[in-house]
């Protein structure tokens, strides 16, 4: 006989608690990964802009623009960096990586601005652009555009991996809890069946030789109690080996 009703709410409760944990962990994970990775990419982009700016000063002063372009091209190999441009202190474009030309939005922007700005460039995508001044801005400014789609993809992938892991843990946890509940329910089912048999045929000697009676736990105590009550025809005394409380 199976004990379904008794543990119905227990199972539901376990599932609900696990679900809540997974949900809360996932939300926290998404928030943390999104915030941390976005900040990391922005900082990296700023560092790259600063590196180029620091390296450009001497090259710019020598007006060696081919070397400057060569420098810029190398940083374009860094994942996520989609464009770089260097403007002079007067706003002239001295090196850039745009093909087939410099976008209108970039041409019209404030070139000395170094604060991060989000840009949506037609045909290119969405970007976060950061700047870094060259020689405190008197020699120009370096601008680096990080592809937000690449950043978003990276973040989604990182979050996806974590949520996948948490979900697997949820499924394993629920399956394990069900198995443990069933483990507890099985002797109770046997006890219930035993009690029913006692009620039907309490004088049968065979009922006094069941393995259930040898159990050293609450189920064993109850089984022996049921047998005793059945044999005595009432609660006039407790059988040997049966205490009044569970241990």
């Amino acid at each position: 006989m199976r004990i379904r009703r008794l543990f119905k709410w227990t199972r539901f409760g376990i599932f609900a608690v696990f679900g809540l944990i997974v949900l809360a962990t996932s939300i926290l994970c998404i928030y943390t990964v999104d915030t941390e990775l976005s900040a990391e990419y922005e900082v990296n982009t700023q560092n790259i802009a600063k590196t180029i700016a620091d390296s450009s000063a001497g090259i710019l002063l020598n007006q060696n623009l081919a070397t400057l372009q060569s420098l810029v091209d190398q940083f374009l190999e860094v994942q996520g960096i989609r464009y770089i441009y260097i403007t002079s202190e007067t706003g002239e474009f001295l090196a850039h990586t745009f093909v087939p030309g410099i976008p209108e939005e970039i041409l019209e922007s404030e070139h000395s601005n170094t604060a991060p700005v989000e840009r949506s460039l037609p045909g290119m995508g969405d970007f976060i652009e950061v700047g870094s001044p060259i020689l405190a801005g008197v020699a120009g400014t370096v601008h680096v555009g990080m592809d937000l789609d690449v950043v978003a993809l990276k973040i989604q992938r990182a979050i996806g991996q974590q949520v996948y892991l948490i979900s697997v843990m949820l499924v394993l946890g629920v399956l394990a809890s069900i198995w443990f509940v069933n483990l507890a329910a099985k002797p109770l089912g046997e006890l219930l069946a035993y009690a029913v048999e006692l009620a039907r045929d309490g004088e049968n000697d065979e009922l006094g030789e069941r393995d259930l009676l040898a159990r050293d736990d609450e189920v064993g105590h109850l089984a022996r109690l049921f047998l005793h009550v059945s044999r005595q025809g009432g609660g006039r005394g407790l059988p040997a080996g049966t205490s009044g409380t569970t241990e």
């Binding site: 081919a66 070397t67 372009q69 060569s70 091209d73």
Partner: peptide, 11 residues
């Protein structure tokens, strides 16, 4: 050409 060669000629 958007590289050192192109920039050299551009300059």
């Amino acid at each position: 050409q958007i590289d050192a060669y192109g920039r050299s000629g551009w300059a």
